[in-house]
Design a binder for these strands. Structure first.
Length: 807
RNA sequence: GGGCUCGUAGUCGAGUGGUAAGACGUUCGCCUCACACGCGAAAGAUCUGGAGUUCAAUUCUCCACGGGCCCACCA
């Protein structure tokens, strides 16, 4: 029976025969695949297994269609989780170099495991083109890409608010932020209007940041305040004056309708800081101590809040306190509320490119098409430039030095990459402007800077190979990272080459847990590929992926679906055993026994030909669901349940006069089986190869995909793309095949109703059919008698089709 | 608050301007010489609700209700 040892056997044979290798010198058209480089955290998750199977099926299909397929696989190693794992293993004492080395070690171990899982799923990537984001080659290309963008004036250094964890003393990125509901006090403070005795009440949850108040915002449509815009107020306790300005983002119904803006209390403050060009006050230190806050300086935030409130009370500025619930963003690791700190960061200019990104997005084929909307939505919402520096060690070094005195930037030499500006000397001795000393960068690049050039790297950028000129043919990725990976890739590819990264992009959605929720460790609803590989063969998993429904729609994981996939593979195998046995008795005719083909033979050959057309179209539009579904329905029901059952009596016949009919059936069985294998081979390569090897020494790898040809007339049939004519019936074969099968169905039904075994004998039937079917039925009498195990078949003409059964 | 997406038999899930694949499950029968991981049969859907366009809507439009995802906001 079928097991995973067979998978491994074929995987090895294919690799040894170089079946997956891309040929740089080939004349065949290239087909270039850009897959996600998984983050190297140790084991594949279901989403990754999903796209591995999906894109691998497409790669195999394209090879069968005659393409020279470049299917590389990359690994995204740089990143925080690896740093964390290393920290947990070795503590915090490691020096920068040792720490980096341990991170590399950690990553390499994880990659080995993930790669093994991919290979066991049958992934047919070409290992010679594997890439690793921490390799010298890849790092060089990332640095080169940044240097090139710098030359195009797209990279700069500036002070910018960053999301910061005061407990871990590090920047954190948005995806590391979680939300939490909290109870807090909304404090109503009185600010004195300048040049008047009047007071203005302002509500805030962050009184401890009062010293960083740089303005008061009101909604310009708010009649209560519209007259005050442009005037100034005095900040309580500290006594400095700030401007009142209008901003439509202010909610008139919240608090008093007036909001104090601190640099920085929250993200809205950051927006207003930029929009209204407000002053910048550094409110807190990196460790969360207050900075520049008079007598409160040096206090922790929490403590400061209490003390400031007390001081406000004493000053009579606190008029009211109200309990409210609000959401705060917290760091996912330590649950500390996230603060905004301003610090010197590197940026890539992206704001001005939103329109261009949308345009390019429109030139790419999106599967499903609605995925494009996500790119457009995101592009419409770019608030500020892309901050590319991270306070991390395990990342790509930023290839610039800067002058410690005047901030002048000195880029690395493009010919001397990769570079680590902390270790290597700058190309100049000192600042070209002020002769200050030059400093290297302790920060490293954001991981998206690494991964947003994958299609260029796999095409060989900056020197493209002749056979791999961008754009790549296709990318597959999750819909969840359209706003990051797809977005940055389109942007960077345009910035570096003025072109689009790919012709097409397939955006798949999520595999949900059986409870309908996202798979999550804490929910305990996760299923892992490694676990599935123990229970199922690779092809069952791959077929399950193909059968997971419309791409782009979330799929709830279910073992029942897995079992169905498994059962089909089993069916395929068992039907092949039958065909093999039949052929050993009848022998396989070398040429089409066209004169001997019966109605059922021609019927199934035509159904198969139609199937080839449908399946080709489905594969070409990246719709594996449709392809797999069509093949399974045809194979299981038309071929196995009807055709095979209908020809059994011919195959088993010992009668000399049946010889030619037996050969025709053997030919048809052989043809439909072997070609069906080719149709499903991209999705279930191991099982089909194993079955194929029962009949042929020639591997399915490298064989041509079956060709569809439209038959010019109803009474023609098509074998292997060649049209034949027949005169055995005078109507459409599909029509007459369906009719005959229906007659057989009626007999089965009658037997079932009488609780009879299907192979039990009955007396006979009388079939009434309209005139156009008469000839076909008369022709098929003896076949029906054999198939249904009955004594006689009477046929008569009538306006309505009917079957009378005599048991 | 905004955008996208979905709402089809007990469950999962395709699809179409002319009343709806398939799977699982259920019921009944069959160990029919490839397969009981199977074969045959049966029951089960007013295609979330309402309005509109149309000769005709599950399929198009609008509204409502209900899931999901993403984004924004939460002073």
């Amino acid at each position: 029976m079928y097991d995973s040892a067979i998978d491994a056997k074929w995987d090895k044979i294919w690799r040894d025969s170089k079946a997956f290798l891309f040929d740089e010198k080939s004349d065949k058209p290239s087909y270039i695949i850009d897959t996600p480089p998984p983050f190297t955290n140790g084991a594949l998750h279901m989403g990754q297994a999903f796209w591995v199977c999906y894109i691998d099926s497409i790669a195999r299909y394209k090879r069968m269609q005659g393409f020279n397929v470049l299917y590389p696989q990359g690994w995204d190693a740089h990143g925080f989780p690896t740093e964390l794992a290393v920290e947990q293993k070795y503590g915090k004492g490691l020096g920068r170099d040792d720490f980096y080395k341990k991170c590399v070690e950690e990553s390499m171990g994880n990659i080995a495991n993930m790669k093994d899982e991919m290979l066991r799923l049958g992934a047919s990537f070409d290992s010679r083109y594997e890439y690793l984001t921490i390799s010298d080659d890849y790092v060089s290309k990332v640095q080169l890409s940044v240097l090139q963008m710098y030359e195009n004036k797209m990279v700069y250094r500036a002070v910018h608010p960053v999301e910061w964890c005061v407990s871990c003393v590090t920047t954190i990125s948005r995806e590391q932020a979680e939300e939490r509901q909290e109870d807090t006090n909304l404090n109503y403070l009185d600010f004195k209007l300048s040049g008047s005795d009047k007071k203005m009440s302002i509500a805030t949850t962050r009184p401890e940041l009062l010293h960083a108040c740089v303005g008061v915002a009101v909604n310009p449509n708010d009649k209560r305040f519209s007259g005050l815009i442009g005037k100034t107020v005095t900040v309580p306790i500290y006594g400095n004056e700030v401007m009142i300005f209008g901003d439509e983002a202010v909610d008139m119904t919240f608090g008093t309708g007036a909001e104090m803006v601190c640099t920085f209390g929250d993200k809205a403050d950051v927006s207003m800081y930029y929009k209204h060009k407000l002053a910048l006050v550094d409110a807190i230190e990196e460790n969360g101590n207050l900075k520049g806050a008079g007598k409160f300086t040096g206090m922790k935030l929490k403590e400061a809040r209490k003390k400031v409130i007390e001081a406000l009370k004493e000053a009579g500025a606190l008029t009211k306190q109200e309990k409210i619930k609000h959401t705060v963003k917290i760091h996912d690791r330590c649950a500390t509320p996230i603060e905004f700190l301003s610090s010197m960061q590197w940026f890539i200019k992206i704001k001005d490119s939103a329109q261009k990104i949308k345009e390019l997005g429109g030139e790419i084929q999106w599967v499903p098409d609605f995925a494009l909307q996500r790119l457009e939505d995101w592009s419409n919402f770019i608030e500020w430039d892309w901050a590319i520096s991270r306070n991390r060690i395990f990342g790509t070094p930023i290839p610039f030095w800067h002058c410690e005195r005047c901030g002048e930037i000195v880029p690395a030499d493009k010919g001397k990459l990769p570079v680590d500006t902390l270790k290597q000397k700058p190309p100049l001795n000192d600042c070209p402007k002020c002769h200050g000393s030059l400093a290297g960068e302790t920060n490293t690049l954001d991981g998206w800077v690494d991964s947003s050039i994958t299609p260029l790297v796999i095409c060989g950028w900056p020197e493209n190979r002749k056979s791999t000129v961008p754009p790549a043919s296709v990318r597959i990725q999750g819909t969840d990272i359209i706003r990051t990976w797809a977005f940055y890739t389109i942007f960077r590819t345009w910035a570096l080459t003025k072109g689009k990264p790919w012709e097409s992009i397939i955006a798949h959605s999520m595999i949900l847990g059986s409870d309908g929720r996202e798979m999550h460790k804490s929910l305990g609803n996760g299923v892992y590929p490694a676990e599935l590989l123990k229970k199922y063969t690779a092809d069952s998993i791959r077929l399950w992926v193909a059968l997971s429904g419309a791409i782009g729609k979330d799929k709830i994981f279910s073992y029942k679906d897995m079992d169905f996939a498994k059962n089909f593979i089993n069916k395929l195998y068992n039907s092949a055993l039958f065909v093999q046995k039949g052929l050993s008795e009848a022998g396989v005719p070398k040429t089409e026994p066209s004169k001997d083909l019966g109605i059922f033979d021609i019927w199934i050959l035509n159904e198969f030909n139609k199937l080839v057309g449908r399946v080709t179209k489905s594969y070409d539009s990246y719709n594996l669901y449709e392809a797999a579904n069509a093949i399974i329905n045809f194979y299981w029901h038309d071929f196995c349940d009807y055709y095979i059952e209908n020809v059994k009596y011919r195959i088993y016949s010992k009668d000399k006069s049946m010889e030619r009919s037996k050969h025709a059936a053997a030919f048809t069985l052989n043809y439909v089986l072997l070609n069906s294998l080719k149709l499903i081979a991209p999705i279930a390569p191991h099982a089909t190869e194993e079955i194929n090897s029962m009949f042929s020494k020639e591997s399915l790898m490298g064989q041509k995909f079956p060709v569809h040809k439209e038959a010019p007339h109803n009474m023609d049939y098509v074998i292997n793309g060649v049209v034949f004519q027949s005169d055995i019936v005078d109507i459409d074969f599909a029509d007459v095949g369906a009719l005959l099968n229906n007659v057989i169905g009626e007999v089965r039904k009658a037997k079932a109703k009488e609780h009879m075994a299907l192979n039990s004998e009955i007396k006979g039937i009388e079939v009434t059919v309209p005139r156009q079917y008469l000839k076909a039925l008369e022709q098929s009498k003896s076949e029906l008698i054999e198939i249904c195990k009955m004594k006689e078949v009477k046929v008569k003409e009538g306006s309505d089709y009917a079957v009378a059964i005599n048991i």
